[in-house]
Amino acid sequence: MASVEDVPLLETQGLSKRFAGLEAVKSVDLRLEKETVRAIIGPNGAGKTTLVNLISGRLKPTSGKIYYRGVDITNLPAHKRASMGIVYTFQIVSLFPSLTVFENVVLAVQRRLGRGILLRLDRDSVYRQSEKALELVGLEDEAELEAGALPYGHQRLLDIAMALALQPVLLILDEPTQGLSAGEIEKITDLVKKLSKNTTILLIEHNISVVMELAHKITVMADGSILAEGPPSEVEKDVRVQSIYLGV
């Protein structure tokens, strides 16, 4: 009999998604262990983003099941999953551009602290926690700017600050370093490292050095299926993976 400790944080069983004529995700079995960093890599069109969209609930699977902490969440809407701790940041930065930076973070914090549908809350603690989330990514000086007016890299940081303010159990980051400068990439890498001590992270990433630095385990996807899985050192040596990335 399996103990509670053996139940993975997240498990998909035979998860598939078919769009008109195209099977984007084919019967994927994925198990995420608690408080680890899992990277998913693979060429464009491998089905990585579709897979995490299925996990976050933005898409409904054609078939298969998703379990979170042993509970079947396959039919739960996205907002329910988010309030259970599955937090997703979009591949393309997604903010509330005409609200201030601070209001963007407040939206995340008040969702967690607000009671009832009308979100009764203690403003002081919402503000304190929002400030803390901004400090974490170094945006505290830009709190009063419109989010849409921030430079791209800072928008990405704000996006991540909002995700952190939700205090995720499982944080899904879809290409967080895309379009960022070397300094900004380093900032995000440090952040993820710090977070991984008490948060499970599912990371889609093209930057291989970031993946090698962060991931405890790598899942390689191609054509909608899992091609290989293992610790970075093993995956690096895998001939099939090399053939996908290097074309040999």
Partner: peptide
């Protein structure tokens, strides 16, 4: 000026993101 109003403003701007923050946008 209320937390509710902020959620409504968020839904107006970007309903997808509001949903992913955990708000039941239909109900709001």
């Amino acid at each position: 000026r209320s937390p509710l109003g902020l959620v409504l403003a968020a839904i107006k701007e970007n309903p997808d993101r509001a949903e992913m923050l955990g708000y039941n946008t239909y109900r709001y």
